[in-house]
Nucleic acid binder design. Sequence first.
RNA 1: GGCCACGUGGCGGAGUGGUGACGCAGCGGACUGCAAAUCCGUGAACCCCGGUUCAAUUCCGGGCGUGGCCUCCA
Length: 446
Amino acid sequence: MTIRLYNTLTRAKDVFTPIDPTNVRMYVCGPTVYDFAHIGNARPAIVFDVLFRLLRYSYGPDHVTYVRNITDIDDKINARAAERAAKDGRNVPILQVLREITEATYGVYREDVTALNCLQPTYMPRATEHVTQMIAMTQNLIVAGYAYAAEGHVLFRVKKKADYGKLARRSLDDMLAGARIDVAPYKEDPMDFVLWKPSTPDQPGWDSPWGYGRPGWHLECSAMIEATMGETIDIHGGGIDLVFPHHENEIAQSEGAHHGHPLANVWMHNGFLNVEGEKMSKSLGNFVTINELLKDWPGEVLRFNMLRTHYRQPMDWTVAGMSESWKTLEKWYGVTEPLANPKVGAAFLEALSDDLNTPAAIAELHKAGDDDLAGGLGLLGFSNVQLNLAAKKQVDEAAIATAIEARKAARARKDFKESDRIRDDLLAQGIVLKDGPAGTTWEIKR
RNA sequence: GGCCACGUGGCGGAGUGGUGACGCAGCGGACUGCAAAUCCGUGAACCCCGGUUCAAUUCCGGGCGUGGCCUCCA
């Protein structure tokens, strides 16, 4: 099956041809671990997990390397670390405080994505563990003339990179025209960006040839890709907001350090997500964390809801949509359980291979027979586990079974008043009865 | 201000130069003691104005609207 992927670099859907089919390499920008992940963060996690699964299906599970990094060097994290250090009054190194914070936040993130049925990436490198590589790359860039040191900073010399702006399709002139930034005096050019910057003694930092400091944000991805997968990889993914400057700068750094060899052949970007028609923001009070959501909704419902919209399309997250998703999954799980002879249907696979067209793939599942349905759900990362299994554990199953038996007896003697009373009684407890040809089953009311 | 997306039936959401996906809701029917669940059937759309074309929702231009980036951001 030919896989076609939309490439931000070419602005076209291109046929995907891996550099090495026995080792397909993909990197996705992961979370900055300063706070709980929100619903928007779930989108790339889920979308690229589906791509990971498709690639594993196509090239073999052992022939795909998926790297999703952990950004644990960041000014917001630094601020929290400083806050906590001051509050605790403990005399511990600031890097240790930072690690405690990011470890806790990342732990929650891992639980979140596991609940969303995302496979674990092959590697999950942390920025703090690759500072040596970042320093080495910076030195290479200086030697090659792509970077210069000034006042404790190291800056990337944007003018030296003739094709700078090729991903975002912007010229330096365009960017300068719209620039609203204060230009630091030590910059040769206003668009030059930071590779290394100084830290004060109380801030997280590392010793370097340019003094005690820390790397700029973009550098970590370049260094960690090099460390885990080499100079050129097949696919680099992330949110569309990362196109500029983050990914543009990654390209500049990596190509500068690697004699112009491309960083990634295909650049993929997922669209943004709104909540109930509004931009998600803390001030609007509609900031939804994954963790919070998982208290009310099974992770698979969240996952399915996300895949009902094509990944490049802007999407609106709504409670109504979640309910619809739950309903569909419940129906499907009813027919695919037990999962008998799953197989992946041709039409389904074709839709999925067409730039991850999950809405079209899901439409095929609506038309498919049970085996194709089960196989398609499996490939999309649905486990065919009863959705309200967890909820069921919290109710008295024996009592419900007894009530169902009593109702059955009442119905047998045509005492419908009594049988309806039992049904209403259970409903009041949140239990919905379903009479089928094979008898009565029940589920938790939504 | 510069760059870039998007605008499809009541709702969600694919796609296509001509035969109008798919799901939810609605409506009709089957099933049921009655419901629910399930099954069968069914109506309904392509932001506005021009242009190209035998033919445009689909291509081109303009407008309006929404959103993103240009500064931390999935």
